[in-house]
Design a protein around this nucleic acid. Structure first.
Lengths: 238, 238
DNA sequence: TAGTGGTCTAGACCACTTG
DNA sequence: AAGTGGTCTAGACCACTAC
């Protein structure tokens, strides 16, 4: 199915159309997690564009961590990963390898913040998922995620545990939705009593608060998270 | 002066060579702040490559905010700006428009952190510049920046004040060095007594701490900064 | 209208991975 | 050796800006 080259009004560049077609293919399940895509030449023929144009489309998805390239081998759909940010140890960056504990998965009504972030009406029904991340066994961060209860009807703790606490995998496997994080906003906050106990720090300890919206691949926001993490052993890397 | 196409060992892609040539041109003063560059075709002829290759080189500099493009008009050298991050108000992002007050510019000896970050030997002579940023008149952040005293020999408070507290402009105008920020690391910290007074917050208030190295355009690190900012009115945007 | 950035092509060659 | 991603070219046309 060739792309359209001449829609006179509001025509998108071809490489963005290519991007969208790849996205659709991933969402429809034509290519799943970790699978290889057809070669750039094959895609070029299929879409009726040149290899360079396909390449630009793929570039933009690689930049969004939706695809991964391996020279000489191929282009692959990236593995579904939760987004807990990156930590910097004295002397090197590493992605946070952490174990996730599910603390709660409950229905609630959206407050103003959640409603605004998710584009829902005030007091709309949402799911609130609270999780605890440990790095090397030590409590590191608390994450609270909110999603529309309507969109994710049927979500429960069992599904989340089956995915090892990886929400993104739940969205993908159980709800067919691939989600990518938007740039975060950051604040410094004080640990509350209960929170301090859970994280193993003193009361009132400063915590780094990371707000993050995440979008489906059509750009609409579907997930809103607040991460509160210790920064005494690791620094957060942006 | 055409680029080299056949250095058999460790040859860099042409578009990166183009990038480097543009960088050299900027550093040598051939094109200064705000000035327009020759058109992509002219550069292509000058460097002996195609327009597309020049474009890729320019792309990478636009991504680093060294250049700015205006369709139909031309490509320009970006204005020198200090990097105080971005703030998010409830409802929209904006670059921090703040007034800068110079608190101190003094010589010191590098501690372990500064020495490591700047690639200097321990106890090397450095300049430490402390500045206070206000947003809408209200104290917002404290920034401490360190540079090698050898590299920036002759730096003093007068030069910084002449540049309205904009260090990057000092580096460029007085020392011929264009500097771009690397991705920051973040921590949550507690305001000290004196600091709390300066920022107009209570003692022990949590502050967001932003660590940031900045590199010259050859990639070597020349500046190391620690920003400590309030996040009660604004959130930091990464 | 002329000149600039922005997109796209068809074809080529190179560097790398895999059988 | 065959196939993949990575780079590059020469030329073309479009959208936009400035004069």
């Amino acid at each position: 199915m060739p792309v359209q080259k001449n829609a006179h009004l509001s025509r998108q560049p071809l490489f963005l159309q290519v991007r969208q077609k790849i996205v659709s293919g991933i969402e429809s399940g034509e290519w799943s997690d970790g699978e290889i895509l057809p070669s750039e030449m094959e895609l070029a023929v299929r879409f009726g564009v040149s290899q360079g144009t396909v390449r630009r489309g793929l570039d933009s998805l690689v930049a969004d961590s939706v695809l991964v390239r391996r020279q000489g081998a191929g282009t692959f759909v990236a593995d579904t990963q939760d987004d807990w940010g990156r930590a910097e140890l004295p002397g090197g960056v590493q992605s946070l390898a952490c174990s996730i504990e599910l603390l709660a998965c409950a229905r609630a009504n959206a407050g103003e913040v959640e409603a605004t972030a998710l584009g829902l009406r005030r007091a709309a029904s949402i799911f609130v998922i609270r999780r605890l991340a440990r790095v090397a066994g030590e409590p590191f961060a608390m994450m609270e995620s909110c999603v529309s209860a309507e969109r994710f009807d049927g979500l429960d703790a069992r599904r989340i545990k089956q995915a090892d606490g990886n929400l993104r995998r739940v969205w993908l496997k159980d709800f067919g939705l691939r989600v990518v994080s938007n740039p975060p906003h950051l604040r410094a906050a004080r640990a509350g009593r209960e929170e301090a106990r859970t994280l193993g720090v003193e009361n009132e300890t400063p915590l780094l608060e990371v707000f993050r919206a995440a979008s489906g691949m059509d750009g609409t926001i579907v997930e809103w998270s607040i991460l509160r993490c210790r920064t005494d052993h690791y620094a957060y890397s942006a």
